[in-house]
Design a protein around this nucleic acid. Structure first.
Lengths: 171, 171
DNA sequence: CTGAATCCTTAGTGATACTG
DNA sequence: CAGTATCACTAAGGATTCAG
């Protein structure tokens, strides 16, 4: 027997509540909506493309090494370096992940790859124009993080203190 | 029997190669290095903090819903909305993920949570000052993605055409 | 040197059902 | 309404080994 205590809406607070539900939808161009709004599925279409650009690109930038790799490459002379240099600059990255990340970034056109048919193989990676163009927005995020990191840490500590659950975070 | 064909460095191309290895390290403040450089481990210290702020925050922004949620909240009047409104705005998110993402963002201090002890429970979430402050850098990334999305798609297509492997991407 | 191939572990995510 | 709890699945990531 389900008590109806928590039905759709109680008499006194019908439909629209304290906070207005504000159909502000029309105030935004529906172009933006494509990126943020409802229709944003992660399913791939017939071509194999993701259908949510924002989410897909974001998750690329959010993956473990892409940003670090781009920033590392940006610090190299000519925004250019070879495989082993990158490996040295990011000691914690596994060879497998370095290869894979480079490959994905190349696929997206952010870096270019040049292979030299020498006896000890040499491969050089370089930020493309597209890759360079993302540096500024990227650096703004980095700057923001640098500037607010301690604030965030503090926030976490007080939060964890007030919520002394076993384990925090996802799951 | 290992042939020594690929030893450290071949005679004619010793140590420093075509591309100079440029110890440009000194040209960068070592503060930056903390974020990008070698010492960047993902291990947690005794307190449970990640030791690589950049990576950690980036992966938060890169997770499936954080950015979408922040942007959605930013579009609400007063950068404020209740749980069910957010759920409606992001129909594809599961309740579990909405709860978890909101919780993480609250923990980081990007959003605040206010609970009302009413009979049908009401909880309102709002971007904090910190949360609002990340909107601009975030929007720059979004803008960049919007502006370069088709370029990236094109790049991927040509790449996949030239590399007709079974499946691309990681793994 | 620069990868590719395998194997394996686990974190992220979704579906579903239950609760105050 | 706003969550929690469980379970199950997948994909991301690491370690290691093999190869041109």
């Amino acid at each position: 027997m389900k008590l109806d205590t928590y039905s759709q809406s109680t008499p006194e607070v019908a439909e629209t509540n304290t906070i207005n539900t504000a159909k502000t939808a029309t105030t935004e161009q529906s172009g933006k909506d494509f990126f943020v709004q409802n229709t944003c599925k992660d399913k791939k279409d017939s071509e194999g493309h993701g259908v949510c650009p924002l989410r897909e690109l974001l998750s690329r930038l959010g993956d473990k090494w892409s940003v670090l790799l781009i920033l590392t490459l940006a610090r190299m002379p000519g925004e250019r370096a070879r495989f082993s240099e990158l490996k040295r600059s990011l000691p914690d990255i596994s060879q497998r992940m370095l290869t894979a990340t480079l490959r994905n970034l190349e696929r997206d056109g952010l870096i270019s790859r040049e292979m030299f048919a020498e006896v000890p193989p040499r491969v050089e990676y370089q930020l493309t124009e597209l890759g360079v163009s993302i540096l500024n927005p990227m650096r703004e995020i980095v700057t923001w993080i640098e500037g607010n990191w301690t604030t965030i840490i503090t926030s976490r500590e007080t939060f964890d203190k007030k919520n002394p659950k076993e384990e925090n975070g996802l799951q």
